[in-house]
Design a protein around this nucleic acid. Sequence first.
RNA 1: GCGCCUGUAGCUCAGUGGAUAGAGCGCAGCCCUGCGGAGGCUGAGGUCGUGGGUUCGAGACCCACCAGGCGUGCCA
Length: 551
Amino acid sequence: MIRNEICRAVEAAALEAQRKGLLPDAALPEITVEHPPESHGDFACAFALKFARTARRSPMDIARTVIAVMQDIPEVEKVEVAAPGFINFTLKGAWLAEQVDQILQQGESFGNLDLGEGVKVQLEFVSVNPTGPLHVGHGRGAILGNTLANVLRAAGYFVEKEYYVNDAGAQMEAFYSSLYVRYQQCFGMDAEVPEEGYHGDYLVDLAGQIAEEKGDVFLRMSLDKAVAEIGVLGLDKIIEGIRGDLGRLGVVFDVWFSEKMLYTGGQYESAMNLIREKGYVVEKEGAVWFVSSEMGEDKDNVLIRSNGTPTYFASDVAYHYNKFVQRKFDRVINIWGADHQGHVPRMKAVMRALDLDPDRLQIIITQMVTLKRGDIEIKISKRAGDIITLSDLVDEVGADACRFFFLSRSLDSQMDFDLELAKKQSADNPVYYVQYAHARIASILRLAQEKGIGFQDGDVSLLVSDPELAYIRKMLEFPEIVEIVSDRLEPHHLTYYAQDLATAFHSFYKQCRVISEDPKLTAARLKLIQSARLVFARTLHLMGMNAPDRM
RNA sequence: GCGCCUGUAGCUCAGUGGAUAGAGCGCAGCCCUGCGGAGGCUGAGGUCGUGGGUUCGAGACCCACCAGGCGUGCCA
């Protein structure tokens, strides 16, 4: 990237100045460049400001000294020093124009980076208990995880997307019994869902389906057997439902990992034995504990309850043992909701207990989504029964708008999802603004094709006007966005970039007619449009969105 | 009580120590005899929660406080 080239040039110049004795021989600060406010060029470096203190020289003086010995950068038109000590770089228009050909040549690989160097990353997300349909809050994690996977792959990582199916434990038992009760009710029996069970209407529907398909067979067997068998059926249907809901949003997993397998596959024993041998396991108060307090945690955590059943936490120890030790992922990213935030330090302690570098496990916490209809907040709880499912949301708002909306806020911000507002705004939703730009481009390209205008030999050096170059500059930010999103794991930058890109395009479109009386300029601009289409498509596709040719 | 997250324009939100703090929506205007007006352009609108501190420089970093959300040893 040109950006890195400028950093290297500044660094080389600073070292050269030191070698010549023009600057003090002190350690240089980290050299970075950023995009300055407009009218200050394309890139700005604040190196001189940062170095002023250690160098005991004025920033302006340092900046002037550095640029005096700096080698020419072929892509750069001019280098200037500006108060209070910035070094500003302006790119050559001709070089910018050439980038259109470069982008076209790179095609779908434009923006791909090799930051990942093939590092094996597992991205685990959603992983909702299969006790009911996904609700609105789960959509955020789903879209986020899927988008991060897309971006990390573009950045050169090997990424596997995984859904951890919590198909073991007490929650599932409650689900199975609740389902059986609903099934009994289908046959007019006087049974009641236990208080700690699942009361949602979806279980009534599910039980009804099963009753219809299987008749009353489960009434003619022992209670234990009936609950177990109807449970398996119900679980499968719920998982299929979840898979379908995610599919509507284009979220597809590579692996569906069963919690039960940790117990039947011996991984639970292996992991427990390992941490027991290392002395991190004690028995007290009738339960088995992980002594995380010895690792700087403020409290210990129960692995096996006094009734003999393992906790979710124990499963997670085994699960992460499996991820790192058995499946040998270099890096694991888990996306959890804010309600699991207290679990993070425990898992970091587990990493240390397993002799693994805690930094290899990254846990992204997304803040809560609250759902509203106007001013009325809707409580989201499966057990309470009053839920707006993710599927309902997609029905009302549309898949692309859901994706864009979920991505458009930083992970750390809570989010009010107002259904009325989302619907009312849908015509002015930024998603349409961005997609419209793509459709507009497609329309122009269609017209060119109808008119039989070829532009393979278009000369991009004819692209010299401000709106043209401004748009090219914006396209060239795309690889930077891929880098930022993959480094910081912050997909929301994509939505802002997409809007900026659309603004730059619409502005260009207003000022520059593409298909005109001038055949050479027409060909050059058609090339620009072609590259523009590519960058829009790349950006939208990273977000899992459609890039429509018509709207 | 303690831990994590948040507080920036009327509203929803960007801004990981640098230049005059930005965008969308809303508001006040302007622009259609040209490729898609789901568009372009201009303007009004800010004690960046409060108070200290660090720094040449703080919306950003540190401390305290205020407000909201989430969590806090046998739920997940």
